[in-house]
């Protein structure tokens, strides 16, 4: 379980996240929705420590980190935590000087110090999982956006993370490419990975989301199942759920 307690994050004077309390259940899919600028990306980045919260606590399966502006976290702790979380970005961010398989092997080899042969075998298995074994030796620029994102998912999976974070993984893709990426995330959800996903795709949120978080102005306005949110009687949430398909 990923527990977030009283987490706040400011950018200078701008309060982006305010006292977030949240429990992300293991083996479940948590969907974060909310208007643009509400802090969804920032929350996800805080969960990967690409952004360091100003204050609060994050506990991932019993390993707890406390944030305090007067007591910066040790680098060691940040790195150890990041190894346990996988991030999939809106615009893929594959390493452009490395082939597909090298992208996937990078974490296991450089960070986990795995042998190259093992990392390669595991990498190929992951490529098979995302349906791209035949692209192993291509460079990212030779792939379509959808294929790049599938490689990015395999790269995150290669670290065997305890939680997978997706930030609008399909918003940079054409509809037909979107389908192939959503297909993979759907499969991961079925395999009971612990997933946190930011998305504007309400039909998808409804389908895979065990818990849906509605974020507004850096606060959690409401959370629950799709039905619970839908019947919450909050007009803003309703409009949000029904206008964005």
């Amino acid at each position: 379980m990923l527990q977030i307690k009283n987490l706040s994050k400011n950018y200078e004077d701008l309060k982006v996240l305010e006292q977030i309390d949240l429990e992300i259940e293991s083996n479940k899919t948590t969907v974060i929705i909310g208007p643009s600028g509400s802090g969804k990306t920032t929350l996800l980045r805080c969960l990967n420590l690409l952004a360091i919260p100003d204050i609060g606590e994050i506990d991932l399966n019993g390993v707890s980190l406390t944030f305090d502006p007067n007591q910066p976290l040790q680098k060691r702790k940040i790195l150890d935590y990041r190894k346990k979380t996988g991030m999939v970005f809106q615009s893929f961010h594959l390493f452009s000087h490395r082939t597909v398989i090298e992208n996937i092997m990078e974490g296991p080899v450089t960070v986990l110090k795995k042998g190259k042969a093992d990392a390669m075998a595991e990498g190929m298995a992951l490529l098979k999982k995302v349906g791209l074994e035949d692209k192993a030796n291509q460079y990212p620029r030779q792939l379509s956006g959808g294929q790049q994102q599938r490689v990015a998912i395999a790269r995150a999976l290669a670290m065997k993370p305890e939680v997978l974070l997706f930030d609008e993984p399909t918003s940079a893709l054409d509809p037909e490419l979107e389908i192939e990426v959503l297909e993979i995330i759907r499969a991961l959800a079925k395999e009971h990975y612990t997933i946190v996903i930011v998305t504007h795709k309400m039909t998808f949120a409804k389908e895979v989301g065990d818990n849906i978080i509605f974020l507004e102005n850096g606060r959690i306005l409401k959370q629950g199942s799709y039905a619970e949110l839908y019947h919450s009687g909050n007009e803003r949430i309703n409009r949000f759920l029904t206008t964005l398909q």
């Binding site: 790195l79 991030m87 615009s91 390493f95 452009s96 960070v111 790269r155 995150a156 670290m159």
Partner: peptide, 14 residues
């Protein structure tokens, strides 16, 4: 690109 640098950090690189 900053995104690639962050992708590196996100897989636990120092």
């Amino acid at each position: 690109p900053l995104g690639q640098i962050e992708a590196g950090y996100s897989i636990g690189m120092n």
